[in-house]
Each structure stands twice: as structure tokens, then as C-alpha cells.
Simulated scan of single mutants.
Amino acid sequence: MDLTLRIWRQDGPEDTGRYEHHEVSGARPEMSVLELLDVLNEQLVDSGREPVAFDSDCREGICGACGVTVDGRPHGPAANTPSCHQRLTAYSDGDTLRIEPLRAAAFPVVRDLVVDRSALDGVIEAGAYVRIPAGTAPDADSTLQDHETADTALDFAACIGCGACVAACPNGSANLFVGAKLGHLALMPVSALDRAPRAREMVREADREFGPCSLYGECSRVCPAGIPLRAIGAVNRERLRSVFRRS
């Protein structure tokens, strides 16, 4: 099928940016959005033009590097699916796709579809470290944790840090991301040793870089890892808990 692409081009952080129109022929429904960009870049290189810059790595939906916005929706039309797994089955011959970077004040554009997501890294860095008691290896049953709690912690730990939740939120909130990290670490016996100071520092950093939660739940509908909305509740819960507990 033939598709028309409106691609955001921006030469650098200080450039105002603009849309470019390109025609791509021979696209197949099973192709992903990233593969469509690959085809476009082959056309641009063959014609002696500058290819479109975009991030990608594993292309298996687990690294979180590939986020773009398609027709105003982070990652693309399919819910809870990363850009590298967004197929063109949602489009028909002659359709137009608008592809641009993840839009958020905390994610400045580096070039074209590439954004700087280091604000998310700052939240993780604010959480510092996980304290693990030194010594000989403990017995397997010395630290008990029930299966349901472990499963919940793993659900939160599935977050890949792609930043789609921030781009989907009208306020540019990162509460789903922050809540997933806090909830995961709070539920694990060893990492819970520094629960209060970690929560204080991570929430403080998130408040500095990102907006407040919009309470609409847009974040969970675009999250590739399917992080549940209850993760957002962990932000205020851990914030409040840290006020009354030193550790």
C-alpha cells in the first residue's frame, strides 16, 4: 500500500522544527512503524537527502528506546504496544500518518524524532542505591515473601521507562513511572530497607521535572508494559509514609 508521511524534522534543540511530507510505496500491513521509517530512510539516502533520526534498539518491545508519536498518540494506535510493535494493519492504502517525537516539556527534542529522556534517569538516580547486608549468602527461606506480593512487585518492575506515560498526560506527569519504581522497590524485602529516604528523593525529583497527575488515566492506555493505574497511588502513599518514617 502507498502511504503519505508527515514527519517532524528538527535540526537541533534550538531549531523551531517543521513537518515534511513524503510518499512511501510498497508498505505492508505486517510492517511496524519503525520498519516504515526504515523504508523512508532508504528512499531519502538513495536520493541523497538526510535520513530521519529516530531511536531504536532491541525492537522486541523491552528496551523502551523507540517511542514516537503517531497521529497524536504516543507509540501508535494500538493500546499498550511499543512503537516497534505497532503494525500498519490499522491503516489503508492512501492514508496519511503524522509521526513526531514524544511531546513533553521534560523531553526536549535532540533531533527529528529523538528526544532527551534523561529526566526519567534523574528520578532513578535520586533513588540512589539498594542497600544489601554483606556477609555469607542467606538461606533460601530466611527472607520470606508471599507469592501474591512478589507477583505485584514484578508487575511494577515491568516498566521499561519509555516515557509514553509522560507524553500522554496533559500535564506531563511521570507518576505512573515513578509509582511503578517506588511500588516495586517497596514490596521487595531487601530494597525496602531504604524505603522512606528513597521515596522522598524520587518524589522530590519528579516534582521538579514533571507535572502533576491529570487523574484521567491516559498513561495506562499507552504503557507498553501495561503498568496498572494503582501504581500512581504508590506515589502519594510512599510520599506520605516517608513523612512519618525515617526508614
Rank of each mutant, 00 (worst) to 15 (best):
N41W: 00
A167D: 08
L88H: 10
C58D: 11
E42T: 01
Q145C: 07
E35D: 13
Q43G: 08
F210I: 02
L5F: 11
G67H: 07
V235R: 05
R18L: 11
V243F: 06
S25V: 14
V24L: 08
G183F: 04
G211A: 05
P189K: 03
R98M: 05
R230N: 03
P77S: 10
G163A: 12
P13Q: 12
L113Q: 09
S32F: 12
P212K: 02
T152Y: 03
A180P: 02
E209D: 14
V222I: 07
D55C: 14
R237Q: 10
S32A: 13
D141T: 14
D116G: 10
A128G: 12
A106V: 00
H21T: 15
Q10V: 13
A79Q: 09
S83D: 13
E201G: 04
G26K: 00
L240C: 11
I232K: 00
G135T: 13
R200P: 05
P51H: 10
L113F: 10
Y19G: 08
V24G: 02
T96C: 05
A199K: 01
D2H: 04
S47K: 14
S142G: 06
I232P: 03
L36E: 01
S47F: 12
D207R: 15
M31Y: 06
A174R: 02
A140S: 14
N175S: 15
G67T: 12
K181G: 00
S118V: 06
P77T: 12
V235Y: 05
T16D: 09
L193R: 15
V52S: 07
